[in-house]
């Protein structure tokens, strides 16, 4: 029984050592590449290296969690001999990293607990955690979860929206209608489709035979009369307008003057 356990331990340690060696080799290779080939290194190959490392770390984790692996935590290492002198065998085993097994380095290398400062910080944190009640803790957990899910939603949804929107545009969904364009341009330019609203009773000027001055000069009739009185002057002006739009303002002016002179009711 004892022997079987020992064998198992040995085997698992060996396999652990080989896995760690693999990991170390990959790290070596990666660090070498980073230091020497950084100018040629492409991002995809960096990602490949990371993937390799994470894969190897995963296998080690799996190995440690395996049922057949005895719990290394239960194994105890006792330093039997400390010596201030250089140990060549140790140096070889550790690739020259640890040349001596002295009282100076042993507490560091065989440590099973965190640093005193870290321990102190951990103690503070657990004290704080114990101080808040379970309800408050639950509440904080819920708040944090909510924040996280909201953030995730915010990050995910707009992308969907954008994608669907651009997809809709790409699908050539018409965003305009030429018939509407024509209708709008016609309406704004010439009042096409807009209800013509001449005040009732006003007659479009230019109809000959309209009774002009019957029943006293109301303002409306006077204006019509004024306009008619100037038809002779108006017509060429209107034609001129088509060819020389730039000249129009001055013509309006003269029209205004002469029209007001002849049509003003108080001048009579």
């Amino acid at each position: 029984m004892q022997q079987r356990e020992e064998k198992q331990l040995e085997a698992s340690v060996e396999s652990l050592i080989s896995r760690v060696a693999h990991l170390k080799n990959s790290l070596h290779g990666f660090i070498y590449k980073l230091e020497n080939e950084y100018d040629r290194l492409t991002w995809p190959s960096v990602l490949d290296n990371f993937a390799l490392l994470s894969g190897q770390l995963n296998t080690i984790n799996k190995l440690l969690k395996n049922e057949k692996t005895p719990s290394f935590r239960n194994q105890i290492i006792i330093p039997l001999l400390l010596s201030p002198e250089r140990d060549e065998e140790l140096a070889r085993l550790t690739e020259q990293r640890v040349p001596v097994f002295s009282h100076e380095i042993v507490p560091d290398h065989l440590r099973t607990k965190p640093d005193p400062e870290v321990e102190e910080q951990e103690k503070q944190l657990s004290a704080e955690a114990a101080r808040i009640g379970p309800e408050v803790a639950q509440k904080q957990i819920q708040t944090l979860n909510k924040l996280c899910s909201n953030l995730l939603e915010k990050l995910n949804n707009p992308r969907d929206d954008r994608e669907s929107e651009s997809a809709a545009i790409r699908q050539n969904k018409p965003s305009f209608n030429p018939a509407d364009t024509n209708a709008l341009v016609g309406a704004v330019g010439y009042g096409k489709g807009l209800s013509k609203c001449r005040p009732p009773g006003s007659v479009a000027p230019g109809h000959p035979g309209q009774p002009m001055m019957t029943g006293g000069p109301t303002l409306q009739q006077v204006t019509i009369g004024g306009a008619q009185g100037h038809q002779a002057g108006m017509a060429p002006v209107a034609q001129q307008q088509a060819g020389q739009p730039g000249k129009m303002p001055s013509n309006i002016k003269t029209n205004i003057k002469s029209a007001s002179a002849s049509m003003h009711p108080y001048n009579r």
Partner: peptide
């Protein structure tokens, strides 16, 4: 509001 001043012939102003 679009206003017209019409003459006997020609384009209204």
């Amino acid at each position: 509001l679009v206003y017209l001043l019409k003459g006997q012939q020609g384009n209204p102003f």
